[in-house]
Simulated scan of single mutants.
Amino acid sequence: MTLVGQAAGQAEAAARRSGVQIRELREIAEFELVVALYDGIWKAEPGNEPASVELMVALSHSGNYVSGAFDGTRLVGATVGFLAGPPGTALHSHVTGSVTGRGIGFALKLHQRAWALAQGLTQISWTYDPLVRRNAYFNITKLGARPEKYLRSFYGRMGDVINAGDESDRLLAVWRLAEPHVVAACSSEAEPPVLPGGTVVALDTEADLPVAGRVDGRVLLVRTPKDVETLRRTDPAAAKAWRHAVREALGGLMDGGARVTGFTADGYYIVERP
Rank of each mutant, 00 (worst) to 15 (best):
R243S: 13
W115V: 00
Y137Q: 07
R214T: 03
P46K: 11
V95E: 10
A249Q: 11
A36D: 14
L131Y: 03
L25G: 01
P193Q: 04
D227K: 09
Q10I: 06
G165C: 10
I140S: 03
G5N: 15
K149Q: 12
T79Y: 01
A8P: 03
H92I: 02
D255R: 14
P130N: 04
A107S: 01
R223L: 04
R170T: 04
G81D: 09
K142P: 07
R218Y: 07
D235N: 15
F70A: 00
V222W: 05
A13Q: 08
T127C: 04
V222M: 03
G262Q: 11
D129R: 11
E148D: 02
R17Y: 06
V34P: 00
A145Y: 08
E191R: 06
N139Q: 04
I104H: 06
G252V: 09
Y268E: 12
A84W: 13
K43R: 14
D208N: 15
L108N: 04
N163F: 09
V132I: 13
L83Y: 08
D227I: 11
R259D: 10
R134V: 06
D204N: 14
D216T: 06
T264D: 12
E45G: 02
P196G: 03
P46V: 07
A190M: 08
R113S: 13
E272G: 02
V228M: 12
R16K: 03
D227P: 12
A11Q: 10
Q123T: 15
R102A: 13
L33F: 00
V99H: 07
E189Q: 15
E248H: 14
T96I: 01
A7G: 02
A51H: 00
G40K: 07
N139H: 03
T122A: 15
G9A: 15
V57R: 15
G144N: 12
V183I: 15
A164L: 08
E24I: 09
E229Q: 10
P192I: 01
A29D: 00
P130H: 07
P274S: 05
D129S: 09
Q6K: 10
P192Y: 05
T2W: 05
E24S: 13
R17S: 09
R170K: 09
S60Q: 10
H181A: 08
R233Q: 01
V66E: 06
S125Q: 02
V20Q: 00
A185T: 06
R176F: 13
W242A: 12
Y38C: 02
R74N: 02
A178R: 15
G97W: 06
S125K: 01
T79G: 03
Y137S: 09
A164H: 14
A107P: 00
A178W: 08
A164E: 13
A8S: 13
F31N: 10
V174F: 12
K240V: 13
S67I: 05
Q123A: 15
V182P: 14
